[in-house]
Design a protein around this nucleic acid. Structure first.
Length: 602
RNA sequence: GGGCGUGUGGCCUAGUGGACCAGGGUGAGGGGUUCCUAACCCCUAGAUCGCGGGUUCGAAUCCCGCCGCGCCCGCCA
């Protein structure tokens, strides 16, 4: 669902089953009870002031509504809170044990049913998966021009995009990740010309034995020529580039085949790199598709009919009301532009999906706003479209560029991450207290999970709008707030459960056995997980899940220190094993939601 | 010049109106393993939340102005 005033996803009133979380159920219950109580006192109930109290408060939920009501009622906030608490009857509430006041706050304390329900729900492998929203979402991300190796400067896009796709999937959406391939722009025409013009023997050796590294040599050489060569040579090259662009526009099959060979070759190498993250796509949608099927022509025809359409300097443009610059949609030579084709692309998305989400670099912001405004003029429901922007990863010395060959290749970063993780595993082998067998295969597996996980986590855990300056040491720090910290918790859970194989079943438990602060704290963290998924999906902010994994891991580590599992008496042991299993599912799924592997051992 | 974004201890970061005069991490100093993996845990020191006004019972959070940094303002993508 979408709030049409903000364009943001909003959640329908919950009718959630237990698997979707006690926290959400309790919140729904508290909201309803508060509303009834306020109505009963003849007070406005439009703002319930529900919030999560700080850590040292026993309540799971609280309301600060008494502050706002104080002037209406003519009494100080604590007195209003007391009246409200008297009006609320916790006997009617399943997940609320008691309603208490603390100064101006009305606090809702969790019941045994809350903890029992959490323990039971998190036994399920799919804990955190929300109810099906029966809504299809196309998430477009990465969409980097197929001109060369994927570098770290654009690595934020596949990592955020893939995490977002995963979070939306958990949140009950039917998600298709797409990569939109620019195979019709000027850069690709230049590339095609360069590929057909230069002889491989004149090019430097490729940095890697992979198609995109081999191909980018042509692209870079071509751009060098266009910048520096003598005017006659440049003019001849420009003629060829122009004829390729016009051939594509005219739907010429031979031109399309020539371009396609370059595009598909480079793309195959790029997608192999992206799969390492992993970031995978249901579809690679090509720009030329929307030229070949006539939809771009159709769109141009409709654009020229708009009141905002103007024909200036031999080019068709749109005088958009809220923008300083006109949007040119047809060049004076009759060819279309990126945005023109992207408009057709978006109408295609609208026709095939309920929602569209695009992950874009901040440099595309103006273009994206003009795109939305234009789609609106063409009578599309643009509330279906959400855009998530991120800022570039720069090097200390500046930005990264494929054309100029400046920057760190993502392949190199991942290789280095794996190498360092492997070294770390080996270094730790000697002082291992656990007497399990670590094979060479295990070392390799752990090195990959930890190395790549650390890179992903470092990026996904930060707000996308904040700038990042890439530094090797920081990106590959396994000690800091990082993937390994959370992954280690998963490995610990697996270690305990592994030792306990063959123990009595963990169903039909009395949650009262788990009554220490450490156990309750862990259960409370677990209970929130589905609500975290929901919030992350509603706000399209995967980093909130990453932040959550850290809190969850901290709670587990407290439990791990305070509460022996295997050596506890039989009933406590059984209950704690259930809790460890619940924690394992929660950590595993939370990591999965941001695309970080959960190692069974480390 | 205009628009958008961003500014939180030395460094990185959470929190974007309410119990937080700010929570983590890292770096610095100290401590913990006969016990389920120490990639862990605990303690100490370190912050006028860029600066100045304003709104509010209440501001890191909202508004206005200023400053630094990033991005954009192409018949490129």
């Amino acid at each position: 669902m979408t709030d049409h005033s903000t364009g943001e996803f909003v959640t329908p009133i919950s009718t959630a089953p237990k698997a979707a979380g006690m926290f959400r159920q309790m919140r729904t219950e508290v909201e309803a009870a508060l509303e009834t109580a306020l109505d009963g006192l003849d007070l406005p109930s439009d703002d319930l002031g529900i919030e999560e109290p700080p850590e040292d408060v026993a309540a799971v939920l609280a309301s600060s509504v008494a502050y706002r009501l104080a002037s209406d009622v003519g009494a100080p906030p604590p007195a209003v809170a007391t009246d409200l608490a008297d009006e609320l009857d916790s006997d009617d509430l399943e997940y609320v044990d008691a309603v208490e006041t603390q100064g101006p706050y009305v606090n809702f304390l969790p019941s045994e049913a809350y903890f029992a329900g959490t323990l039971e729900a998190a036994q399920s492998e799919d804990f955190g998966t929300l109810e099906d929203r029966e809504t299809s979402v196309v998430i477009e991300h990465t969409s980097a021009n197929p001109t060369g190796p994927v570098h770290v400067g654009r690595a934020r896009n596949p990592i955020i995009g893939d995490a977002l796709a995963r979070v939306l999937e958990y949140a009950g959406y039917d998600v298709d990740p797409h990569y939109y391939v620019n195979d019709a722009g000027r850069q690709i025409a230049v590339f095609t010309w360069a590929y057909e013009t230069f002889d491989e023997s004149d090019l430097p050796d490729p940095e890697r034995d992979s198609p995109e590294y081999e191909m980018v040599r042509y692209y870079r050489t071509g751009n060098d020529i266009l910048e520096d060569a003598d005017p006659d040579r440049v003019a001849a090259a420009e003629d060829e580039v122009q004829s390729i662009l016009e051939g594509l526009e005219a739907g010429d099959e031979a031109t399309y085949e020539r371009v396609n060979e370059v595009v598909d070759t480079v793309l195959s190498g790029m997608s192999a790199t992206l799969e390492r993250l992993p970031a995978e796509f249901d579809e690679f949608v090509k720009e030329t598709h929307f030229m070949r099927d006539g939809s771009t022509d159709d769109l141009v025809a409709r654009l020229t009919e708009l009141d905002e359409a103007v024909y200036e300097d031999d080019a068709w443009q749109l005088d958009l009301p809220d923008f300083e610059k006109n949007l040119v949609f047809l060049r004076s030579d009759g060819t279309s532009l990126y945005t023109t084709r992207d408009l057709a692309h978006h109408e295609w998305k609208f026709a095939n999906y309920d929602r569209a989400v695009t992950v874009l670099g901040e440099d595309h912001k103006l273009q994206a706003e003009q795109l939305t405004a234009t789609l609106d003029l063409l009578d599309n429901d643009t509330s279906q479209l959400s855009q998530v922007f991120y800022s570039w990863v720069d090097l200390p010395e500046g930005g990264m560029s494929t054309r100029e060959g400046t920057g760190v290749d993502l392949d190199d970063l991942l290789d280095e991450a794996i190498d360092r993780a492997r070294q770390e595993v080996k270094d730790r082998l000697d002082d291992r207290t656990r007497d399990d067998d670590i094979t060479d295969d295990d070392i390799e597996r752990i090195a990959h999970q930890v190395g790549i996980g650390a890179v992903r986590y470092d990026i996904v855990s930060k707000q996308p709008t904040k700038g990042i300056t890439f530094e090797w040491e920081r990106a590959l720090d396994f000690e800091a707030q990082s993937a390994p910290y959370v992954q280690y918790v998963h490995a610990r859970c697996c270690g305990i459960l592994d030792e306990a194989r063959g123990s009595p079943a963990t169903d039909d438990l009395d949650v009262a056995l788990l009554d220490t602060d450490a156990e309750r704290g862990l259960l409370r963290a677990i209970a929130r997980f589905p609500a975290v998924i929901e919030q992350s999906a509603d706000e399209l902010r995967p980093h909130v899940v990453a932040t959550y994994t850290r809190t969850l891991a901290e709670r587990f580590n407290v439990f791990y220190r305070e509460c022996p599992v295997l050596d506890a008496d039989a009933e406590t042991r059984r209950a704690r094993l259930a809790l460890v299993d619940a924690a394992r599912h929660t950590v595993a799924n939370a990591l999965d939601a941001v695309g970080v592997a959960a190692p069974a051992s480390m």
